[in-house]
Design a protein around this nucleic acid. Structure first.
Lengths: 126, 126
DNA sequence: GTTAGTGCAAAGGTTTTGCATAATG
DNA sequence: CATTATGCAAAACCTTTGCACTAAC
C-alpha cells in the first residue's frame, strides 16, 4: 500500500457514485499533483482484482468505477439529463430462478444497464 | 442505400449472433475487397440510429453489434471459454413492475450482461 | 537492500474525422 | 447535376507498456 493507492481508494469511496479514470485522476492531482494517469489505471486494475472496486460500462466510450457495495444494485441512465439512478434489485436471483439457460451457470457478476428518460425529462419534453 | 451498406446489413443479419466492427470488416472485404473500416463504423452508427442494429458492451475493449430482434433478450458470458449464451427474459417488465425508481422512467433500452462459468467449464475445473 | 510501485513518454487498440474522389437518386 | 457516401490516411481517444527512478517493507 502506497501513498497513491491509499489516496485513490479514499477518493473512490468518498465519491459514493461512479467515477471514470480521468475524473479520478483529476481529483487525485488536487491532493497529490504528481500522480500519473498510469498509476490511476494500474490502481483501478488492482482494486478490481482485489474486489474493492467494480467496473461499469455505461456508455460506449470509457469505463466507470465504483467502490464495491454489499448490496446488488443496478443503474438507470437518463438519456435526457445524463443522470444515473441506482436501484437495488435481486436480479441475479430472478434470472437464476427463471432462466433455464442460467441454471447451470455459475454466475460471477450481473450488470444491468437501462437507458431511457427520467420523469423530469419526460415532463419537459425530454 | 449503397452497395456497401446493403452488404453490411446482410452480413449482420446472416451472422445471427454478434459481430464486432473488425469481424464485420473482415467478412465484408471477402465480398467487396475495397470497403473500408470507416464505412463499417459509419454504417453501424447509421443502423444503430435507424434501430436496425443494437450495440452491446460485452468486454472492456470494443463493442459488438447484432441485428435488432423482436424479442427482448440478454447475454451470459462464460469467463472460461468465452462463449456467449443468449436467453430471453422479460426483465424490463420485471424491473418496471418491481423497482420503484424505475416506475416513472420511460425505458428505451435494457441490457443485462452476466458473467460467470458455464456448466462445461465448471466440470473441467473452470 | 531488495522488491514492488511510480512517473513519464511512447506505443497500443479502437473509433472518428478531413478531404478528395466516386457513386447515388 | 447536386447531394451523399466512400476510401484513404491521419488524428483522437482511452488504455497499456517499457524503462529508469523512487519509495516501501
Amino acid at each position: 500500500m502506497t501513498r497513491q493507492r491509499t489516496l485513490l481508494l479514499d477518493l473512490i469511496k468518498e465519491a459514493g457514485g461512479h467515477l471514470d479514470a480521468d475524473e479520478l485522476y483529476r481529483r487525485a492531482r488536487e491532493k497529490q499533483p504528481r500522480v500519473s494517469l498510469s498509476t490511476v489505471y494500474r490502481a483501478l486494475h488492482l482494486f478490481k482484482k482485489m474486489g474493492l472496486v467494480e467496473e461499469y460500462h455505461f456508455d460506449e466510450s470509457h469505463h466507470h468505477y465504483e467502490a464495491t457495495s454489499k448490496k446488488e444494485h443496478h443503474h438507470l441512465l437518463c438519456l435526457g439529463c445524463g443522470r444515473v439512478i441506482e436501484f437495488q434489485s435481486p436480479l441475479s436471483r430472478y434470472v437464476t430462478r427463471n432462466v433455464p439457460e442460467a441454471r447451470d451457470f455459475h454466475i460471477v457478476d450481473t450488470e444491468l444497464r437501462m437507458t431511457g428518460y427520467c420523469s423530469n425529462c419526460r415532463k419537459t419534453g425530454q
